[in-house]
Design a protein around this nucleic acid. Structure first.
Lengths: 246, 246
DNA sequence: CGAGTGGTTGACCACAATCAAGACCCGTGG
DNA sequence: CCACGGGTCTTGATTGTGGTCAACCACTCG
């Protein structure tokens, strides 16, 4: 099992840094509890199915048939949906290791639009391929259930944030959550570069750009963070977490 | 397959009306695409596992181990979670046919609290039971994936509502969605009794009780609905749907 | 170096929250 | 049968958080 995961994670340092890939969704999909040698050979086949998209590019759009599910190797993807008159809500910023497209498995139609915030590399599992794979590797279905169930919990948390938290609490939650996600992927939890604009942060948190700016400025005045445009340093994670009301 | 589903749906008219059960989650779980005779016998065993809870009772609470997953036969359950200081957000009103507990499969810990809004009957599948069942009936896992994926989509829609819609649009969306859900279950889509209070509607829609009242009153003045406390009649579904901005 | 994008700050405003009071409804007990 | 009490619903007056509109700043890139 150790040997297997090595085979999967160490692909080539050029297009897959170890940190991203060790935690990448496809590797998590690829290292289920009871995987066998035969499984691992199959999964190598999947892992080869790569896709690169550039900053600003669409991965898929609302209403089109779901062609594949994805796992992000590196980069950032935002997913969003909109009201009839065009107000849109970002439902997630997805980073290395996150799966994409699972929400649309039940009807095979994309319910969100997915766009790259920076150059992004993905593992791609075509839908018809997935059908075969899950038959050959039962544990893959277990993994799908796990990932979907986590996604439901994430969205429940987002609903709490959008329904009940103040602007200040939203921003604090956002920063703490992002920091924790980076930490889990092996990046710094104290200092990081945002790949999204103030506008996009607002569109995710249910507030406007200006409120994001003002609140970040206040956090800086209060010594909670250092705010240099896209570069954020967390100075007082404890107080920030307390503000977040998680 | 027809004979099978008959066996499952027609239990006894006393504790299972046909409408609710034909569409109930356990029956959907119980009538997967490729079910065999053997499967159906197994599923009969599950379907017998019933549970009744009374209005106001807790089904499970946050943090406790997930003992089972459920499907509602009749009644209504609300699920909710809260901020550290006790503001709570209802994440769903679940009616006949809806599954419960799926969101917590990945770590086996309840992430929401579930409480009955009226006397409610559930099918219960204990977690350890589920393990065995999914091994014997592979299509059950497919069903779990489908149901989870639908739940993710539902919560994405809720996020859009909470993040971007006005109070008026929220109420309109709520009424239209509820009406459609009732219709799909075979109840009237034009007139129905709410099982939740104004306060609970607000706690779900991210607004306060008073705003719910005022907005419903306005809808009545505008001839969109008739509003007799818990009894709601939809008078102009089209205009309401337009207001909803779905 | 100038244009353009994204970020910041200020002044003002509006929608919904809060606070408050009263109406309605239903169950319970005298 | 009516009176009482508590919960739910409704309506009104006032307030406040965050939205809107507007101007300016700062960084980047051609």
């Amino acid at each position: 099992m150790n040997a297997q995961s090595k085979k999967l994670t160490v692909v080539s340092d050029v297009d897959c840094n170890a940190v991203a890939c060790r935690n990448c969704g496809i590797c998590r999909l690829g290292a289920p509890l009871d995987s066998t040698e035969a499984d691992s050979r199959l999964l190598e086949r999947i892992a080869k199915n790569r896709r690169q998209i550039k900053r600003g590019d669409l991965l898929y759009r609302i209403g089109e048939p779901l062609k594949a599910i994805y796992a992000i190797r590196y980069g950032t993807i935002k997913t969003y949906l909109s009201t009839a008159d065009g107000r849109s809500q970002i439902t997630g910023f997805h980073i290395a290791g996150d799966p994409l497209g699972l929400a649309d498995l039940h009807d095979g139609v994309c319910s969100t639009e997915a766009r790259a915030l920076e150059n992004t590399s993905l593992c791609e599992i075509p839908i018809d391929h997935l059908q075969l794979l899950t038959e050959e590797i039962p544990s893959l279905r277990v993994q799908l259930t796990q990932l979907l169930s986590q996604e439901v919990q994430r969205l429940q948390g987002l609903s709490l944030l959008l329904g009940k938290k103040t602007a200040e609490e939203r921003l604090a939650t956002f920063l703490i959550t992002l920091s924790q996600r980076f930490a889990r992927r092996g990046y710094s939890s104290r200092e990081f570069n945002l790949s999204m604009s103030r506008n996009e942060i607002g569109t995710y948190l249910g507030i406007v750009e200006e409120t994001v700016c003002r609140t970040l400025a206040r956090f800086q005045d209060d010594g909670l963070i250092e705010n240099q445009r896209r570069l954020i340093s967390i100075l007082d994670a404890d107080r920030l977490a307390q503000l977040a009301q998680v």
